[in-house]
């Protein structure tokens, strides 16, 4: 097997540009997803069953269907209807945000519900209101527990963002495909792209471990 380094060298600037976009799409997706997910999770935990149902439907629909289908629906149907100037990148960010919001909502819920009931009772017995209890006692502890699963969700999102190449968002995978199309070679472009994904994910894993060590307390 001959390995033509020149293809990689030629495409290197595009791979880097694509990697940056991949990171950008993923970061936007996890941040917007976290904000939406926070609201969804409170809806999902509402005491009233009829309020809970639509939120739980939202979560289950997004978790129960392939991201690719969600991407196509957003790109070819939803976005053209509500925001015609949207590009492939817009569609990718919207899709990843919606998709991750469902997972994040469940991560938030698990984080809050995993806390001992005694924490709420102790806070309330001091005379704190429900809102104060959430703000000073429950949420700060829940957030620490959420960091590891949120990190995992972010890593998943980075890999799923590669689907955006299919709708021609010029992220990393898109440039791999472009190189393959031009030279009719599979190994060089895809190995290069795979290694870049690996580097991104590994760096992130290390960063997360570092954050966990500093932030996540031992109970």
């Amino acid at each position: 097997m001959d390995f033509n380094m020149n293809i990689i060298i030629e495409y290197w600037p595009f791979f880097l540009k694509g990697a940056l976009l991949t990171l950008g799409i993923s970061i936007a997706g996890i941040i917007i997803g976290a904000v939406i997910g926070l609201f969804i999770s409170f809806g999902r935990m509402a005491p009233n069953k009829w309020i809970r149902i639509p939120f739980s439907l939202y979560i289950n629909s997004l978790r129960g269907t392939p991201v690719l289908i969600q991407l196509f629906i957003v790109h070819y149907a939803l976005l053209p209807a509500i925001y015609p100037p949207g590009t492939a990148v817009t569609s990718a960010i919207v899709t990843l945000s919606l998709n991750s919001s469902a997972y994040v909502a469940e991560i938030f819920r698990a984080g809050i519900q995993s806390l001992d009931k005694g924490q709420t009772e102790a806070a309330r017995s001091l005379g704190m209101t429900k809102v104060q209890t959430m703000r000073y006692i429950i949420v700060p502890q829940a957030v620490r527990r959420m960091i590891p699963p949120l990190g995992n969700e972010f890593i998943t999102l980075i890999k799923e963002s590669s689907l955006a190449g299919i709708i021609a968002a010029e992220e990393l995978m898109y440039w791999g495909k472009a190189a393959m199309g031009q030279y009719q070679r599979v190994w060089e472009p895809y190995i290069a792209v795979a290694i870049i994904y690996l580097v991104i994910v590994f760096s992130l894993t290390y960063l997360l471990q570092w954050i966990e060590k500093r932030w996540v307390q031992r109970d």
Binding site: D116, G118, Q119, E121, A122, A123, R124, S125, L126, G127, M128, T129, Y136, I137, P140, Q141, R144, Q217, D219
Partner: peptide
């Protein structure tokens, strides 16, 4: 909430706030 400020409670399982120092637990 007003009445609870006048009635202190101590629990079997302590229920200290693990994310706060001992001093902060007492100050909060």
């Amino acid at each position: 909430n007003q009445i609870r400020t006048e009635v202190g409670m101590v629990f079997q399982h302590f229920n200290l706030f693990p994310h706060k120092s001992v001093l902060e637990n007492v100050m909060i």
